[in-house]
């Protein structure tokens, strides 16, 4: 009786723990020094599919900032550098005085998905973009 109760309590605590710690472990979201998928055709294809499903509503199919769901930035011109780009995608960014914002994707997409999306967006870069 005691033991079953204890087990139950442990079980619940574990359940709670699982609920609080999202899908991936924290280290999964360490940003590598360089994008391992940069230029990788298969990864770019997969990143494009993710991009078109989850990013294009706000940033537009061309990544020019003309989404049908509001004003995302023009990602072809992006000036943040590779690491800066990934960091915004992970943690999002609020827009001063607006409800619409850039949502964060940490614990939603895997790091692999995010790096693949990044590799795809890199292929759309305009000359002034910074992917260093």
């Amino acid at each position: 009786m005691q033991i079953t109760k204890w087990l139950l309590a442990m079980f619940c605590a574990a359940g709670l723990w699982m609920a609080l710690v999202p899908a991936g472990m924290a280290e999964e979201y360490e940003v590598p020094e360089a994008n391992p998928y940069s230029g990788d055709k298969k990864a770019i294809r997969s990143g494009r599919s993710w991009y078109r499903n989850v990013c294009s509503p706000c940033h537009g199919g061309r990544a020019d900032g003309q989404g049908e769901r509001g004003t995302g930035a023009d990602l072809r011109k992006q000036k943040l550098g590779y690491k800066g780009f990934v960091e915004v995608v992970l943690d999002g960014r609020k827009v001063q005085g607006r409800i619409q914002f850039m949502p964060g994707w940490r614990n939603v997409l895997s790091m692999k998905d995010i790096l693949e999306i990044t590799a795809y967006v890199e292929t759309l870069a305009l000359p002034e973009a910074n992917w260093e």
């Binding site: 499903n53 989850v54 537009g60 199919g61 061309r62 003309q66």
Partner: peptide, 8 residues
């Protein structure tokens, strides 16, 4: 998700 995308 949509499984579709568009360009204006």
């Amino acid at each position: 998700h949509f499984g579709a995308y568009q360009e204006f």
